[in-house]
Design a protein around this nucleic acid. Sequence first.
DNA 1: TCACGAATGTACGAACTAGTACGTTAGCTA
DNA 2: TAGCTAACGTACTAGTTCGTACATTCGTGA
Lengths: 223, 223
Amino acid sequence: MTSVEEPARPGERERVRDAARTQAEILDVATQEFARAGYDGARVDEIAARTRTTKRMIYYYFGGKEQLFTAVLERAYGVIREAEQQLDVEHLDPVAAIRRLAEVTFDHHEQHPDFIRLVSIENIHEAQHIAASEKLGRIGSPALDVIRRILEEGRRSGLFTADVDAVDLHAMISSFCFFRVSNRHTFGALFGRDLVAPAQRAHYRTMLGDMVIAYLTAERAAD
Amino acid sequence: MTSVEEPARPGERERVRDAARTQAEILDVATQEFARAGYDGARVDEIAARTRTTKRMIYYYFGGKEQLFTAVLERAYGVIREAEQQLDVEHLDPVAAIRRLAEVTFDHHEQHPDFIRLVSIENIHEAQHIAASEKLGRIGSPALDVIRRILEEGRRSGLFTADVDAVDLHAMISSFCFFRVSNRHTFGALFGRDLVAPAQRAHYRTMLGDMVIAYLTAERAAD
DNA sequence: TCACGAATGTACGAACTAGTACGTTAGCTA
DNA sequence: TAGCTAACGTACTAGTTCGTACATTCGTGA
């Protein structure tokens, strides 16, 4: 997610004043700070201090703490959106495709703990920033379209017995991936097991895939 | 979770000074306030204002904001612990028992959104209050023992093919129940679906049971 | 090269917030 | 019933934190 620190591409002299770079740097640091301490725990002064610029610039470019947090969320959601657009699983058979999709989701959650924390924080605030954001209003999800098509194909070929909706399946996969990262601290403290321990990674990754496939292909009494 | 407002049982005159009642009232209000705004967003003055007592008493009984939050967590975890002890599913066959357990977990999460929020908040703070609490250090979970025994029975009778660990199964069930409540706001805002809409309740409750049972009973290649 | 605005830095203030010093009173017990 | 202590209330402070007024400088287009 670090989008700064490109130390002046050759030929492009490092300017002292660079609006885009300043904004990106603020967003980088703000992402860390908000993820670290939550919205109210985050300090505007702290964000400014860890930037090459000053607090003044935060207000100049973003308007205030609230809008800064919204901007952080917008960029963070943009990243997953891009990742989802890279999804290339539809050449696989439905079972393999869903398993692959689950694995990609699993990996993405593991690799972006800050994003998970931001989403948790935004939920504590009842998604008010997303609601107030035009960009995030109806961002849509490329992954959902992919899931929809795979499910269609799986049902048509008779492999999938479950009549699941794409949004629900997405919720099922996400919940496991999200919980594993978001609740690792309380879960670890209470049950003495680190859900994100590297040694357990493959185990949980397989477990997720098994679970989803078992659900989709289970023999089921007609409704 | 409200433990006050028993308006002086007959014969027991309402005393003006009642340490236990004052503490319980502070905990009730603090639970709401912390759940509403997060640890840093919560205001000690606000908690005091919504109590029949004053801020002075919060410091008198609990020592400070940090310890108050810890006390709130301790009580909240105590409530689920008690609920789990009421679990009575072992007279059922393993499949029915697990499904019932999943449903009870599902219902409990739905009925205690404040608890879910507190746990989310505690995770943002990396479970530091749980770690610092003697009561919560190794509270253990009655539900885990129940799961362990059901799994044992299910495996012995050949109904369950999966060689799952009780803690992992608990994580699987919890993740779905927890996510549905904790992430309902962002999920709703982004995908336009309210995961806790009453009309969908039965649907998701069944989905969870189907998922867990499918996983446990799936035909699986020998490892 | 010069003027003009975008970009930036400094210093400060007003409001808030956790925590406390000090004084008071209810109610139990001897 | 007297007195002692747990329980309680008021008023205040020190420190923090978001936000801004005002002054300054860089870079670019005319």
